[in-house]
Amino acid sequence: MTTPPAAPDLPAVPALPAVPALPAVSDRPTASDLPTVPDLAPGTVLQLRQEDWRYGGHPLRLRVEQVRHDISHYYRDEWVWIVGERLDGTGLTQGRMEALVRVAALVGVVGPVTH
C-alpha cells in the first residue's frame, strides 16, 4: 500500500475586515406600526378600491371564503391573500378568485351578522 503524498503547506488566509452595521431604516414601518391581519368571517363582503388590491386594475367586490394568514408574513403582513367569490354590482357571483389585498384596507371591516 502506498501513502498519498503530503499536502503542500498553504499560506494562511488573511482575516476579513469587520463589516460595519447598517444604519436603521426609519422610513419603513415596523411590525408594531402595521395593522394586524384581521380574521374576516366567511360571507363578509369587501368593497375594495383599485389601489387596495393587486393585479386587477379596477375596484373589486369580493365575498370572503378564506383569509390566508399562513402566507401573509411573506408580505410583511402589509398584504394578505383572500380567497372568495367576485360579485357584480347587483351581488351576483362572477366566479371564485384569490386577491392580494392591502391589510390597511381591511381595518374596521365588519362581517355578516349571524344569529
Rank of each mutant, 00 (worst) to 15 (best):
D52A: 09
R68L: 14
L10T: 10
R49Q: 03
I71A: 11
A21K: 14
T44K: 06
R86I: 11
L100R: 10
L60V: 12
V83Y: 11
L40Y: 01
L40K: 03
W53S: 03
P112Y: 15
Q47L: 09
P29I: 08
V19H: 01
A104P: 01
H73G: 07
P14Y: 14
T93K: 08
A104Q: 05
E85H: 06
Y74P: 00
V113R: 06
G111T: 00
R49Y: 04
H73I: 11
Q50C: 03
V64W: 01
D27W: 15
D52P: 04
P23C: 02
V37F: 04
P23R: 06
G91K: 09
V25N: 01
T3C: 00
Q94F: 05
L40H: 03
A31T: 02
L100E: 07
P38Y: 01
T3R: 00
P11C: 10
E85T: 05
Q50T: 13
P112W: 15
A105L: 12
I71Q: 13
R28L: 15
A6T: 07
R86G: 00
Q50G: 05
Q50I: 10
T44M: 06
A6G: 01
V64C: 03
T90A: 06
W79L: 12
P42D: 02
A41E: 10
V101K: 08
A18Q: 04
V110S: 12
G43A: 12
M1Y: 15
L22F: 06
R61N: 04
R68K: 13
M1E: 12
V101F: 08
W79P: 00
G84R: 09
G56Q: 04
V103D: 11
H73N: 06
T44A: 05
R63I: 11
G111R: 01
A15W: 09
P11G: 05
D52I: 05
V103F: 14
D52V: 04
V19E: 09
L34F: 02
P38A: 01
R28I: 13
V80K: 11
G43T: 06
R49I: 00
R86F: 10
V103T: 14
R63E: 13
R49K: 08
L46N: 03
V37D: 07
D70F: 08
V109D: 02
V101G: 05
Q94I: 04
Y55G: 00
R76I: 04
A6L: 11
M1T: 11
S26F: 14
V109T: 02
G43N: 10
A6M: 04
I82L: 11
R61Y: 09
Q66L: 15
G89D: 15
R54A: 13
R96N: 00
R63T: 10
P59F: 03
S72R: 11
A7W: 14
R96F: 07
G56C: 08
S72I: 10
P29E: 07
P5N: 09
V101T: 07
M97Y: 01
R86L: 07
D9I: 15
L34G: 00
G108A: 12
W81K: 09
S32L: 15
P5C: 07
P14S: 09
H73A: 11
A31M: 02
V25F: 11
G108Q: 08
G84C: 13
A24M: 15
L46I: 09
P35E: 12
G57F: 08
E65P: 00
V25E: 04
A6R: 06
P14E: 05
